[in-house]
Design a protein around this nucleic acid. Sequence first.
DNA 1: CTGAAAGCGCTTACAG
DNA 2: CTGAAAGCGCTTACAG
Lengths: 342, 342
Amino acid sequence: MKATIKDVAREAKVSTATVSFVVNGIDKVKKNTKERVLLAIQKLNYVPDQAARTMIKKKTKTVGLIVPLLTNEYWAELAEQIQEELILRGYTLMICTAGMKSAELTINSLLERNVDGVILGGRIVSDPDDHYIQMFMDRRIPLVSIAPIHKDVTSVWGDNLNSSREVVEHLIQQGHTKIAYIGSMSTGIGRELGYRNALAIAEIPVDEALVRNGKSEEVHNFSQYGYQTMKQLVADKCEFTALFGANDLIAIGAIKALQESGLRVPHDVAVAGFDDIAMAALYSPAITTVKQPIGEMAGSVVAALIEQIEQPDGQSIARKITFPMTVVVRESSIFPKGGYKN
Amino acid sequence: MKATIKDVAREAKVSTATVSFVVNGIDKVKKNTKERVLLAIQKLNYVPDQAARTMIKKKTKTVGLIVPLLTNEYWAELAEQIQEELILRGYTLMICTAGMKSAELTINSLLERNVDGVILGGRIVSDPDDHYIQMFMDRRIPLVSIAPIHKDVTSVWGDNLNSSREVVEHLIQQGHTKIAYIGSMSTGIGRELGYRNALAIAEIPVDEALVRNGKSEEVHNFSQYGYQTMKQLVADKCEFTALFGANDLIAIGAIKALQESGLRVPHDVAVAGFDDIAMAALYSPAITTVKQPIGEMAGSVVAALIEQIEQPDGQSIARKITFPMTVVVRESSIFPKGGYKN
DNA sequence: CTGAAAGCGCTTACAG
DNA sequence: CTGAAAGCGCTTACAG
């Protein structure tokens, strides 16, 4: 049988109020009493019942996270970090993967459960009209996002533009001038702009044939998209000696395609990706990429959300919080001994 | 102000009990009365409070899933599939990653939220004495696991032993006799036994120097573990022409180490992994592995759990449900033209 | 500091 | 059929 606050009170020979004070860290209880209560809690394996608490407080201490999918390591890691941050602050996380058939049901379940707030990991793919965003806002559910998706929603984001510029500048410094770009709607415009800016600063004209941008509907699977797009680039007989892929999975797919076409990386084509997933270091060749400060971003997004939840009258103007990111140079872009053949 | 059942009762001039009967479709109420109540509900925009209901019914329609971590694609996919199955049956999923610092807090939150049931994805790493399993069982929380971790818990599992035997037999058929094994506590004993059985059937004596088994405490990061262990095998000057890694990440880490040591895969060493994560097909070389039927396993584990939740008096004997798995042969183990050098 | 007691909004025996 | 009432497990003024 599950122990209740009454059982603990009886065991510790105090009132339920005192137990409640101890459990909630309200500093009213004599040290001696407190210890007795803690002992009883431990002995009975007491865990407070959230439902009862919720009924009184009208707060569920639950936050929803909507991500496109979990099988992309980037989102998986973000979800882990966000959960960690939330749990330390006493909140529970409910994860929704918006890429599944059941997306609508999952998102609705957030509403039914009366979550205290929602973190949006990018735009909800199945929701072109921001229908859900509007619904959350109508219900006054605090909202925060990982990408700047709506002018009234505070967002946390990496500085995609500048870090993309930096990684492309790294390729340029390696002697490349014919640099291809493979991105998609869902990797965001910032990375493409960074690519274009780097070329502009170096006074290299952009060859639009080398810029490939998949519409998000087409891109369910980044690595496959990278693979197919690179096959296409090769089939189109495009000339290039380097590639900037808008994320690591795209880059890995592209490398696979290059290798199948008999092109070596980095000897024939240098490659850089984005995100620094674990596989970037493990791949062969190890992939030059950009590392996002996921831990910090998770902390920031959680802090912003909890601020909104707990101080609803505070600053309500939506902010954009931008984090710097770091270029990580690895084998896939390093100028090999003997130089490039082109 | 939100309307309560009392407001409705007053409005309809009945008792709260009658309102409750109407709301819950309990057919006890005279048609006339019922209509009056429905009218009042509509007028007041009454929505029952879930928290209050939960407190009495002791059912939250929520299920917890405990996985070691989310950044392993295998667990991420399993989590996605389980969520999909649950949501279609009207349940919400709460995911806990047991590998984080906050593991204890997260698991406790499952108890606080009074989940109706728990799915254990393998043994909880931080819980050597099955303290949590015991706690769930003590509280009569329906429990189901993805690996056979406890004799009283129904489990769903792939047939590790036989599929491991098959993949090692594939290596043997390729002409290999000196086959190394890298596994760990957390990948389970079945895969190692399959390896041993394959050798035994082929009458190849096991060279224990080639069998490496990390204790689970040491193995936080499979790919790194595979990398280091392979470095060690090479440093130990062990003779082998093939490797069976107990999962794909171990295999990938090992390949990385082999390549750094100047050994080519599969020319000098053939490699096979396990799980068929997306990266297995994308890696270079593509990795021979074993594919688990994750969708079916998720469906099965959810069905077993919901059966326990909704028919607690039904079959209570713990079952072991085993799924067959498929060997997927790819480049990393294919005998190259010209044969092996040893 | 600590306890007795009044709820939070709902369900459910138990009477009538 | 319907109502009065006893909880579910917790929090929180209000006394002492």
